[in-house]
Nucleic acid binder design. Structure first.
Lengths: 365, 365
DNA sequence: GAACATCTTGATACCGGTATCAATCGCGAT
DNA sequence: ATCGCGATTGATACCGGTATCAAGATGTTC
């Protein structure tokens, strides 16, 4: 007996006919609503199984108006941070009976707009978005989301012009703590890898404000936290210790190499992202420096490899899983009809101190 | 003017009415098919824009029967390998005008079955699957896919009982090469971290066959490659040098710790997955061993951090991106109607030699 | 000016479900 | 036997698009 290739899958009507009952009865049985006598129910079930009936969720969504699907637009699926968030989000969604439709923008606005378009077209019940937009940017492609009152949760990044629930990390405080930890060990020249991206670095501290306004919220906050720590310690801000280039690993290496070539180089570096950390490590290695003897280091986002490095690297660990579940719960609550005013949930990150931080060596000063 | 919350989005009918034309004319204009006079076309476009019309892809798919969506079922979204594949796959799909719907099973058969169910229900045009099944297992939840003749491409893992296109790595050869490289340096005791998972390790080499049959194809192949290399060199197989436990990092550490405690411990280790590598590194570190002086190491899957480790770690690099694009192309060809017999595409992996391999130290022998 | 080809248009069936509602059935009470 | 009531059932409209096809408008040719 060869496999039966049946290009036209059985529908409710066919099941109904085969079972000798009306369509509505089959729908009630298979859909599990209304009431059906046990006898016919069993017969229908048997016929349905035999025919290999599967519900067509498109058709169902068509009439019910709900797809039981959450749209998730991530800035970068390649980033372990977002992958971690996605896991948490997926778990929470699944246990609530929702599917998740994930799209990645790679930080590209056009792709973000396209992604929103797809999700709206597919009639998702709600959207989680980590926007590729500066904190004070306007995001026109979200107008349609607002207009249709599609529940929306901002993830990891705030945008002033968008009124929606949000789930973020207290980046400023996390950053401040990390830098303060470095300063507490005696460092006064702390490099900061990944400031807000810009073509022309800030001339001075006040000029930073302008840059921060147009940068990703998270980047801006981390830089502000850095400034907070400097200010607390009375250390003047030095533009040349902050990178403002494109965020790819090689650029981090280049930037750190530049810092290390300064006449008054940093004795410690705070790398605020995974790529920044590996890029920084590469630069340190290229210069033949030893961590933490020659230079101290703190990274962002914990990972298995960071803890098995030699030395194990101190990092700011974000509660990625919780961020994801919280975003899902938040969105599901909206979908369920909650109409409380938009609120922002702030989670705290956690500095994990390992062995990549030491006192600055007197030699390199 | 406050934002208009319009819970009932404009439909083609509404646009038609507002523009004073028939529905079909609007459909033709917006759908970009058939012919419409320029004048009415412009009017309709203007009205549609003003009303904020967006096509409902569900409704469209309903009649056309195609969703322009590819379903992807991954064994583990947390694994960088699959993330890399996904990127390639997504790019290829997008450039062909397809969306991608990703689900992760975390190697759980039930979740895999559920995932397939979701994709079939959502009427995806084709499915890419990295099955959580042993090479000789039967996978009943794929019956429906076969029956409906939904194009299917197996990713990274073959299953004997499933007749479908497949895109995989030549794991056996990649593994053989890596182990041979170790042997060429003089190692005769090579630890293998992540053999096929089983409760009771193989008693002898022939018993392995049974285990391999029920394990993931890729795991089995890698083990076979290991055996190939041993045989080439005339080195007898030693069960105690192969781990067969659950694949979580802590288990790798435990297993390697066990190997190192052997009276005749390995002088080199081949870690066939990212988690296996970090777990192994942790064990090495715990024992206070130095790599490559005390023990040599080769990992699987390249990553930025592996190359900035001290020492930089040699790895077998898989062409992840290409694997993804190839899977997509393969699937899209089927969707386009290709009816050539199912074929398996085999890609070669590439051993990247860095500095984690050296001659075995005479001390540890 | 008539005949004919072509372009444009709208009415309508359909996709596969769900929801509503009225009709029918079964059964106990009067 | 009649009635009432809840349980069961089926007919049908509907969701928002697409596809088909016939009708009407326009234009071309002789």
């Amino acid at each position: 007996m060869s496999i039966e290739h049946d290009r036209t899958p059985p529908t409710i009507s066919e099941v109904a006919e085969a079972a000798g009952v009306g369509r509505a009865t089959v729908a009630r049985t298979l859909g599990g609503y209304g009431s059906v006598s046990p006898r016919t129910r069993d017969r229908i079930l048997a016929v349905a199984r035999e025919l290999g009936y599967r519900p067509n969720s498109l058709a169902r969504s068509m009439t019910t108006g709900e797809t039981r699907t959450l749209g998730v637009v991530l800035a970068d699926v390649g980033n372990p941070f977002f992958v971690g968030v996605l896991r948490g989000l997926g778990e929470a969604a699944r246990s609530a009976g929702y599917d998740v439709l994930v799209l990645s923008t790679d930080e590209d606005r056009n792709r973000e707009a396209a992604a929103i378009d797809v999700l709206v077209g597919k009639q998702v019940d709600g959207i989680v978005l980590s926007p590729a937009a500066g904190r004070s940017d306007v995001v026109p492609h979200l107008d349609i989301v607002a207009k249709r009152a599609i529940p929306l949760v901002l993830l990891d990044r705030l945008v002033d012009t968008v009124e929606a629930d949000a789930v973020v990390i207290n980046n400023r405080e996390a950053s401040r703590q990390a830098v303060a930890a470095l300063i507490a060990r005696g460092h006064r020249r702390v490099g900061f890898v990944w400031g807000p991206v810009t073509n022309e670095p800030a001339a001075d501290a006040t000029d930073l404000r302008r840059i921060i306004d147009h940068a990703l919220w998270s980047d801006g906050e981390r830089l502000l936290g850095y400034l907070d720590a400097l200010e607390e310690a009375g250390i003047p801000f030095d533009t040349s210790l902050v990178t403002h280039v494109l965020k790819h690993e090689p650029q981090a290496t280049r930037a750190v190499l530049g810092m290390l070539a300064l006449s008054d180089p940093p004795t410690a570096i705070f790398a605020t992202e995974t790529d920044a950390l590996t890029g920084t490590l590469r630069a340190i290695r290229q210069r033949g420096l030893r961590c933490p003897d020659d230079i101290s280091l703190i990274g962002f986002d914990d990972s298995s490899w960071a803890s098995v490095m030699e030395p194990p690297i101190s990092v700011v660990a974000q509660p990625v899983h919780q961020l994801g579940t919280l975003a899902a719960e938040c969105l599901l609550a909206r979908i369920a009809g909650s109409d409380s005013p938009a609120s922002t949930h702030v989670l705290e990150a956690n500095l994990i101190e390992r062995q990549s931080v030491a006192e600055p060596s007197t030699l390199t000063r």
